[in-house]
């Protein structure tokens, strides 16, 4: 079908205030108003959508829920600019526009049968959560090996998806660790930037492990370089880039790096692929 860049209407079913005191992050649970659209809609973890606040504008967000959820999908929004602020002002029951899914998504098939390490930082955990909940889903759990997670947040107030933790921690053959930037009263988990904790807190040497990391650009840089130093093959280090994706189809030119378009050829890349690209992200 010819592309019109026009979104479908979706209703906000639920808004979860994830954090608020430092960074203002909300998670939106939505479903398309048109049942036919909803029924035929599918996405992969790591893909993204363009979300319209009517009359205001449009912004890209990664899927934060697992595709195994058929009745709704979720995305998380940090209040940063015009569109994110407008989204934060919406209420449950309000309508927004959504088009997508766009991008390549995580290489789920290549991770099948493998051990997996997830390293998330702040709202970068959102796209990872889509894959985490897919992998840990009862139906799929048997198809993946050991799962280890290390999630980093600025402070105890900035943790995301707290309501998922008991599910993650209780999943078979799964370990979950949390860290914050600086010591804080009452915090019983790790302290320090994630790249400094990789060697001591994760078993990175397990053969055939796939590493998925997402977070602020600077964190991605440090974590991927640290993993490389530890001898992990760049093809096994997988991350997702954030650019100013607008059209979602590799046309409008904003997310062009080298001959690739992040919205179409990405946003998920292995470190091996990033090594081949001009350093412009």
């Amino acid at each position: 079908m010819a592309e019109t860049f026009l979104p479908h209407k979706a209703e906000i079913l639920k808004i979860t205030q994830e954090t608020g005191s430092n960074l203002n992050i909300k998670t939106f649970r939505v479903r398309f108003v048109d049942e036919e659209v909803m029924k035929s809609f599918s996405f992969l973890p790591g893909q993204f959508m363009e979300t319209t606040v009517f009359g205001v504008g449009e912004a890209p967000f990664g899927f934060a829920s697992s595709p195994t959820e058929k009745d709704f999908f979720e995305f998380s929004v940090k209040e940063t600019g015009l569109v994110t602020e407008a989204l934060h002002n919406l209420k449950e029951g309000d309508l927004i526009g959504i088009r997508g899914p766009y991008g390549n998504g995580f290489p789920v098939e290549k991770a099948r049968g493998k051990n997996i390490v997830f390293i998330g930082g702040g709202i970068g955990l959102a796209p990872l959560r889509s894959l985490i909940n897919y992998v840990l889903d009862e139906q799929n759990r048997g198809e993946f090996g050991r799962v280890q997670m290390l999630h980093a947040f600025r402070s105890p107030e900035d943790t995301l998806y707290n309501y998922d933790y008991s599910f993650w921690e209780g999943a078979p053959n799964t370990t979950v660790k949390y860290t914050i930037d600086n010591p804080a009263e009452g915090w019983e988990h790790l302290v320090g930037f994630p790249h400094t904790l990789l060697a001591s807190e994760l078993e990175c040497e397990l053969p055939g492990t796939k590493f998925f990391t997402c977070g602020p650009p600077i964190m991605i840089k440090f974590v991927t370089e640290e993993l490389r130093k530890m001898g992990i093959a760049p093809a096994d280090i997988i991350t997702t880039l954030e650019m100013k994706m607008s059209c979602g189809l590799g046309k409008c030119g904003r997310c062009n790096i080298g001959h690739k378009y992040i919205c179409k050829d990405g946003p998920v890349f292995t470190l091996e692929e990033l090594d081949q690209m001009p350093d412009e992200f």
């Binding site: 860049f5 009517f54 009359g55 504008g57 015009l82 954030e242 650019m243 059209c247 409008c252 030119g253």
Partner: peptide
């Protein structure tokens, strides 16, 4: 290269330029 803009609830497309700093600047 193009961008989108909104006017009274209507979406439009407009030329944009890779020469502008705002073209790739994140929020």
């Amino acid at each position: 290269c193009f961008g989108f803009f909104w006017e009274q609830g209507e979406k439009s497309r407009c030329w944009d330029s890779c020469m502008f700093a705002s073209f790739t600047k994140h929020a």
